[in-house]
């Protein structure tokens, strides 16, 4: 196959990108009308996992901090919505800002102590938060429903909204949030804040000498990441209409991490791949051997880590590089 070279920034490059995005957009919009309700629901779930992975990516991918507690943040968002809608009969949409606020504040609360910690120590601390979440939820069962969980009645959602059934409505709701959140994440990363954060990840002390205050940025990224997880959790509550402690265990945190590294750490598209991975892959791990599904999954993770540390996205890029070369425009010197 002849290898072609595309120069970034040329009209050819732009039109390929435009066509690509247009096609993607078309697929995303048509999907719930082509697929059955159940499949639509599955893609909605995949997007929710992708948002969870995205939130972890902001922390782990950009600032290099490992969190094993994102299951708790996701759960906190979900519980916020379930309690407000289920117990206090709020309009579901209004609970999203509340969930965002609650998790943002919680993020600051854990972000400040986390400032003093790096690497393994932070992983330990977030592990503690992730593990403590379930017993604490159960302890306050008058609000959370304890181990029975708390549910939202279906009738709080209209049967049909602007000609969409509930599955389609929820799908588009999540798509809209996903588009906005991914765009926000992208802009944040490209902003001064994002550059400061990645500089700190790569080497903290030189970054400090260049006038970056780690404290402020680290807290900010922690809070934002946790808010993103909280919003994803709130949307999850829309879709599942139920929160129980069993859904937000360490397993979920491990799945987020696995989705992150398998998709491709530090990249936005990787988060989407990670979401699809979480939703669809264990399914097929089971096909290989039912009783050893855990082992198959464990091996998949280890093999990907050992052979393709950049994740599936890295692999895709490698394959693409064999077909086309995307080059930066030559630097023009005056």
């Amino acid at each position: 196959m002849a290898k072609t070279t595309i120069i970034r920034g040329t009209s050819q490059y732009r039109s390929i990108v435009t066509v690509g995005f247009a096609l993607l957009g078309l697929v995303v919009i048509l999907l719930p009308f082509v697929m059955s309700g159940f499949r639509t629901f599955q893609f909605t779930m995949a997007l929710l996992w992708a948002l969870g992975v995205l939130s972890l990516n902001m922390l782990t991918g950009w600032s290099g901090q490992i969190s094993l507690g994102h299951s708790a943040l996701f759960g906190l968002g979900s519980y916020t919505t379930c309690i407000l809608v289920g117990t206090y009969e709020w309009n579901p949409l209004l609970t999203i800002p509340v969930a965002a606020l609650v998790t943002f504040i919680f993020g600051i609360m854990i972000g400040i102590p986390a400032l003093r910690l790096a690497g393994l120590y932070l992983a330990l601390m977030t592990l503690a938060i992730g593990v403590a979440f379930t017993p604490v939820i159960r302890r306050f069962k008058e609000h959370t429903g304890g181990s029975m969980g708390i549910s939202i009645k279906k009738k709080v959602f209209p049967e049909e909204i602007v000609g969409l059934n509930l599955d389609q409505y929820l799908y588009f709701l999540v798509v809209i949030f996903a588009v906005v959140m991914f765009a926000l994440a992208r802009n944040l990363l490209k902003s001064r804040v994002g550059r400061a954060i990645t500089a700190m990840r790569d080497n903290e002390i030189p970054a400090q000498t260049m006038g970056i205050y780690p404290a402020r940025y680290k807290t900010l990224i922690f809070a934002t990441s946790s808010m993103f997880a909280g919003i994803a959790g709130a949307l999850y509550a829309f879709v599942i209409r139920f929160s129980a402690p069993y859904s937000f265990t360490l397993t979920l945190a491990i799945f987020f991490l696995a989705g992150l590294v398998v998709g491709g750490i530090g990249t936005l598209a990787g988060a989407v791949l990670g979401g699809l991975f979480i939703q669809f892959v264990p399914y097929y791990a089971e096909e290989i051997n039912q009783s050893l599904a855990g082992m198959v999954f464990g091996i998949i993770i280890i093999v990907i880590m050992v052979t393709a540390p950049t994740g599936v996205l890295g692999l895709i890029k490698k394959v693409r590089a064999r077909v086309v070369t995307v080059a930066d425009p030559p630097v023009v010197r005056n």
Partner: peptide, 26 residues
Amino acid sequence: VQDSSLLTVVIVTLGLFLGLNSVAGF
């Protein structure tokens, strides 16, 4: 993965965790 990033190592030990648990149950 010994010399890879901390995250990679953590993930690999988690993979090991899942695998051992599943094999013992099997």
